[in-house]
């Protein structure tokens, strides 16, 4: 009995790989763009500009305080009401990019705050401008705090990408839904789905762990 289903599943394997590719495409684009945006927003939130700071802060709070599924629906179903028509794929990428940027923004803010104020004062008093302080003094130190949770956040976001299957993006999760209608062995089908996610996420988990170890011992952080 199981053998029969496994064989059927094997027939669907190319379909699964296509879904895997879609998952990688949606998360990959979102993580890259979301990281850039997240750093930008995080730096703005750590700056002195009150208005921009408040705007970014409010946006991040709204996104963090609402379910991702609802955000995806709003972008896909509700924006068209206002004349913004989006295919499922760009809608998914926009939603996930935004989510990534918001979480990464918070990680970046925490990293920047972890750099002692005296570092900034030392940089200020030698005449470095705002950008030079950030580029040469603050961010290199903040990165040590940012990197481990950043990679951990990537894992969470890749898993969150499964939500976009709800608007018809044929990612691994969607492939699971479609397959289980023909191969009525939920355990097997979604076991395979889970395995595929795990294969992408596990190396990242390992990377995050090893970064954590490296960063906590690391350089020569003496008395600062």
């Amino acid at each position: 009995m199981w053998g029969f289903y496994i064989e059927q599943l094997m027939h669907s394997l190319p379909f699964f790989l296509k879904g895997l590719w879609m998952t990688i495409a949606v998360s990959g684009i979102s993580l890259v763009v979301g990281t850039l945006l997240g750093f930008l927003w995080g730096i703005i939130r750590s700056s002195q500009n009150r208005i921009l700071k408040a705007l970014v802060g409010a946006w991040v709070d709204i996104i963090r305080g609402t379910p991702f599924l609802v955000q995806v629906f709003i972008i896909f179903f509700i924006l068209p009401e206002f004349g913004i028509q989006l295919e499922a794929f760009p809608a998914a990428v926009i939603a996930l990019t935004n989510l990534a940027a918001c979480f990464i923004c918070e990680i970046v803010v925490a990293g920047i705050q972890a750099v002692p104020w005296g570092q900034r004062e030392a940089a200020i008093s030698t005449g470095l401008n705002w950008y030079q302080q950030l580029r040469n003094v603050i961010m290199p130190q903040a990165m040590r705090v940012i990197l481990p949770p950043l990679v951990g956040q990537y894992v969470l976001l890749i898993k969150d990408s499964s939500v976009v299957s709800a608007i018809g993006v044929v990612d691994v999760t969607r492939v699971g839904w479609l397959t289980v209608q023909r191969v009525p062995q939920g355990l097997l089908v979604f076991g395979l789905v889970a395995l595929l996610y795990f294969i992408i996420c596990y190396p990242l988990i390992q990377l995050s762990n090893s970064l954590e170890k490296r960063m906590s011992s690391g350089y020569s952080r003496g008395k600062v």
Binding site: P116, G118, Q119, E121, A122, I124, S125, T126, G127, N136, V137, P140, Q141, Y219, S220, R221, G222, K223, V224
Partner: peptide, 16 residues
């Protein structure tokens, strides 16, 4: 600021 050197109690050297 380029004309004024400032030395802090806690040194504030860049550790990296």
């Amino acid at each position: 600021r380029a004309e004024i050197g400032f030395v802090f109690q806690q040194f504030n050297l860049y550790p990296h």
